[in-house]
Amino acid sequence: MGFLSVLSFAHRCIGERLQPGDIAVDATAGTGADTAFLCATVGAKGTVYAFDIQQEALDRAAERVGLRQEASGRLHLLLESHANMRQAIPPSDHGRVAAVMFNLGYLPGGDKRIITRPETTVPALDAALSLLKPGGIVTAVLYPGHEGGREEAERVESWAASLPEEECQAVVYRFANRSGNPPYVIAVEKRKV
């Protein structure tokens, strides 16, 4: 058995902590893979907020989840920057979010000029941490191989390294001997008080 892919590693980190009935956030809906994973994991009694600045991404997420009447009350698709997640998520859910997933870069099959940027991603990561319950987790899949991706990855890595260890623990999962600029994951767990 080989090592997990970066996406599988992010899903495993989330899956080990997220429970049916929990609240989760997909900060970058993209193709809807993470949105669908979060919806399946929190189940019928859970809630998922999915953010993207492109309607095409939200449409893909809805299609991937198979948005039916029974899912419409638990999945909230928000045409909004992830930097605004704290304002967009109801205050009653602040401090109750179990997991937040980021899959940075551009929408596969979409306009590659529309990318996530550190100016919005770092504030979004701060917002995500503020929304987490103790023991909650944030994962960020980083893609340094595209234009603008290396700068964003470096900023996110600096952000994670600067977190106070008494409040959070952060890990980096990457393939050290893969050529080019392969994607990698940063996962941050909010410590239980």
Rank of each mutant, 00 (worst) to 15 (best):
R64P: 03
Q87C: 05
Q69E: 15
L79D: 14
L79M: 11
A44R: 05
D59E: 12
A88P: 03
D59W: 02
N84H: 14
Q54G: 09
A44G: 10
A36P: 00
E80A: 13
C39I: 04
K45Q: 14
T35Q: 01
A88D: 07
D52S: 11
V65K: 01
T31M: 08
L77H: 11
A40K: 09
F37W: 08
A61R: 02
D59M: 03
R60D: 11
H82F: 07
E70I: 05
A61E: 04
E56W: 00
D52L: 04
A33G: 09
Q69R: 15
A61L: 05
L77G: 11
G43Q: 08
G43L: 05
F51L: 06
R86Q: 11
E63N: 10
A83L: 00
S72D: 04
A71Y: 08
E70H: 14
L77P: 10
Q69L: 14
E80T: 05
A50F: 06
A62P: 03
F37P: 07
Q54N: 12
T47H: 13
A57L: 04
A33T: 03
A50E: 12
G32F: 08
G46S: 06
A33F: 02
E56P: 00
A61P: 02
R60S: 15
F51M: 09
A88V: 01
E63C: 03
G73Q: 11
A62H: 07
A62V: 00
C39H: 11
G73D: 10
T41S: 13
Q69G: 08
A83V: 01
V48M: 06
Y49V: 15
N84L: 09
A36R: 15
E63S: 11
C39A: 15
M85K: 10
G46Q: 08
K45A: 13
G66Q: 11
L75Y: 02
A61K: 03
D34H: 01
C39T: 10
A88Y: 04
T41I: 00
L78G: 07
G43W: 05
M85N: 14
A88N: 05
L58F: 08
L78E: 09
V42F: 09
D59Y: 04
A50D: 12
H76W: 07
E63I: 00
Q87E: 14
G66A: 10
S72F: 02
V65S: 01
L38P: 01
T47E: 12
G66R: 09
